[in-house]
Design a protein around this nucleic acid. Sequence first.
DNA 1: CTGAAAGCGCTTACAG
DNA 2: CTGAAAGCGCTTACAG
Lengths: 374, 374
Amino acid sequence: MPTPQGKPSRSPRAPRTPRDAAGPKRATVQEVAEAAGVSTATVSRVLNGNYPVAAETRRKVEQAVRNLGYVVNAHARALAGSRTRTVGIIVQDIIDPFYTFIAHGVQRQAAEDGKLCLVCSTYGVVGGELDLIDALHEQRADAVILVGGGVDDPAYRRKLADRARALGREGSWLVLCGRPALEPGVPAGVVDYDNAGGAHAITDYLLGLGHRRILYVGGPEQLSVHQARVAGFRRAHASRGLEVDERLIQPGTFSRRFGYERVTQLLRDGSAGEFTAVFGANDGVAVGVMQALREAGLRVPQDVSVVGYDDIPLAAEVTPALTTVHLPLEQMGREAVRLAVALRGESDGPTDTRHVGTHVVIRDSTAPPPDPAS
Amino acid sequence: MPTPQGKPSRSPRAPRTPRDAAGPKRATVQEVAEAAGVSTATVSRVLNGNYPVAAETRRKVEQAVRNLGYVVNAHARALAGSRTRTVGIIVQDIIDPFYTFIAHGVQRQAAEDGKLCLVCSTYGVVGGELDLIDALHEQRADAVILVGGGVDDPAYRRKLADRARALGREGSWLVLCGRPALEPGVPAGVVDYDNAGGAHAITDYLLGLGHRRILYVGGPEQLSVHQARVAGFRRAHASRGLEVDERLIQPGTFSRRFGYERVTQLLRDGSAGEFTAVFGANDGVAVGVMQALREAGLRVPQDVSVVGYDDIPLAAEVTPALTTVHLPLEQMGREAVRLAVALRGESDGPTDTRHVGTHVVIRDSTAPPPDPAS
DNA sequence: CTGAAAGCGCTTACAG
DNA sequence: CTGAAAGCGCTTACAG
C-alpha cells in the first residue's frame, strides 16, 4: 500500500520549536517581528518598502533581519500577494543559438525588472509546449513567453488560445515570440519579426546579382516561420515576373546536418536541376550547405552563392562570412518581457503586438553567378 | 506619500465571489472539492496520487478538475508541503557554449525528474553569484547549482559557505559545478572534472610531439579553473624535467577576442620569445589564436600547433578542427541535479563529490614542430 | 506610522 | 478509503 513519501516530517499539530536544533534555524517574519519588537505587518512593510515606516523602526527591523539571516519565502509572498516576479520562457532547445540569444534577452530584461526566469525546453516533444505552459501556469509566472515558429493547425491554435485565456484569468500573460498572433480577443501578446519580408529582401538581392535558379533548403514544412520565409522567397520572384521551379524548394529541418546532406544529395543526383545560389532556411542550414559545396569542389561565392537567415554569431565567423538576414534576437527577448509587463498594466486589454526590424547583412558568401543570366 | 501600488484589488475581508465575473474564474481545490462532492483532502490526494483513493472517487475528482480547468497553485503547494520541484542554476553567461551545454544538462535531468529550472546569469557582475543564490533561496529551490570556476579567496569562500549553510537549513543544497569544494562540514555538493589532469595530458601530448616552447594563453588569473590548468601545464613540463619560460604564460580572459589580440601582439613584438605551439585556455581562446596565426601568415599545424580545452562543438567545426580536452558538459549538468537529489535523501550528510572524466581529443590542429627540438 | 487579524490555496497527521 | 482542521509564511484592508 502506498504511503506518503515524507521523511520524518513536521506535524502541523505540533510545530517544531525554532530553537531546538543546533545552530540558527531558518527564520520567519514572525521571528523577525519578535526580535525587532514590532508586528509582522511592520516587518513586511520594511521588507517591501511600499509603505512609510519610521526610520528608527526600519533600523530595528533591518538589524533583526541581518541577525537572524532571514530570507523571505517567495512562495508565501506569492500566495499572499499576487505577483510572483517570475517569468517563464519556453523554447525548443536551449542549445540552439537562435533560442539561446532570445532566452538571453529575456533573462537580462527580467533581471533588470527584478524578476527571475524559468527556462524550459520542449526538445521537439509533441505537445511539449502545452505541458510546459501548464507547468508555468502552476508556477503562476507573471508571463509565459513562447518562442519560435508554431504549427499553424487550427486545433492547436485553439488549445493555445485556451491556455492563454486560463493564464489571463490569473492576471498572467502569454507572449508569442516569432509566431503569428492568435484570434483577436485572445489575451496574448506577440513579438514578431518579418519572415516574409526578410526572405523577400535577401532573395531579391540574389536576383539582383543575376541569379535565376536559387535553391531554397531546409525548414520544417508545418512551421509558420518556414511558410513565411518560403512565401517571401516566392514573392521576390513574382515581383520580377519570374517563375519558381518547384524542384528548387527543398524543405526539411533547421539543422546544419540537413543542409549538408540535402545539398550533397542534390549535387549528386541532379534532381533539383542546376542552381547558382542557395538560400539556407537559417544560418545553420546555410553553413551545412557551404560544407557540402566545398566538399563537392565548388567555391563559395565564385561558383555558388549562399545566404542564410537569423544572423547568429556563427554567420560572421565562418569562412567565407555568410550573407544573411539579421534578426535582433536579444532584443526580441527583451521586447517580450517588456510587452508582458506593459500588458499586465491593463485588466483586459486587446491583443497587443510588437514588431522588430530585420535587414540584410551582406558579407562574403555572395557574388554574381559565374555565367550571369539576362 | 507612498501608497500601496495595488490595482483595485481584492479585499481579504470580502473575498470576491468566484462566479461574479463573466466566463469561468480560476478554480481552487475548494471548488473542485465542492464540484466533486468530496473534501479538499481527497482532491489533494487524487492530484498527488500518493494515497489510496477509491476509483469512483478519483473519477469524480478528475472530472471536476477537467470541467473547471483547475490548475494547482505551485506556491500554495510549496508552502503547505515542503518541496518546490524547482532547481536553480547560476552561470556567468548563458550565451557561452560552455555554460549553455551544462545548463542544458541540468534542464534535461531536471525535466526528467519532474522539476522546473530557474536559470540565472551573473554577467560577470561582482557579487552577482551571492545575490542570485539568495534569490534562489527565496524561491526555496530544491537545489542551487553554481557553475564555473570561482575566485579562490578565503573571504569569498566563507560567504559561499554561509549561503550553503542557510540553504542547508532549508533542506536545500548548494552544488558547485566545476569549482573546488568548500571546507569539510559545509553542506555543499561538488561535481568536478580534472582541470590539472586534462591540462597535463594535452601539454604532454604537445611535448611528446617535440614541442619545447608552448605558449599558454588566456584565462582569468583569479579563477580556480585557470589556476588548475596552468598547474597541469607546469607539471607536464616538470615531469619531463623541462623548465617553463615564464614569458610563455599569458593569462587574460576566456574570450576568443583575447586569444586573437594577445597572440597578434606577441607575434608582433616578440616579447614572449619564439613558440611552436599554443595552448588556448579554452576552445574560444584557441580559435582566436588560430585566426591571429592565419592572419600573420602562419599555418596551423605546419608552422604552429594549437590546442584548446572544453571541446565545445565549435572545436570540431573550425578548420583545421581543434585538438582539445573533452569535457562531458551536458553530463556535468545532469550529474549536478542527480547529486542534489541524492543529497536531499540525507538529513545531514557529509559533503559529497562527483568527478566526471576528461580526455584528450586529437584532431587536425596539432603536428610536430617544423624544426623539432630533440 | 503601526498593529491585529483575515486570508491566500494548498497538504497532511489524526481520527475515523 | 475519507473528512475536519491546522498550519505553511506571508501581505494588506481596516482601524487606529
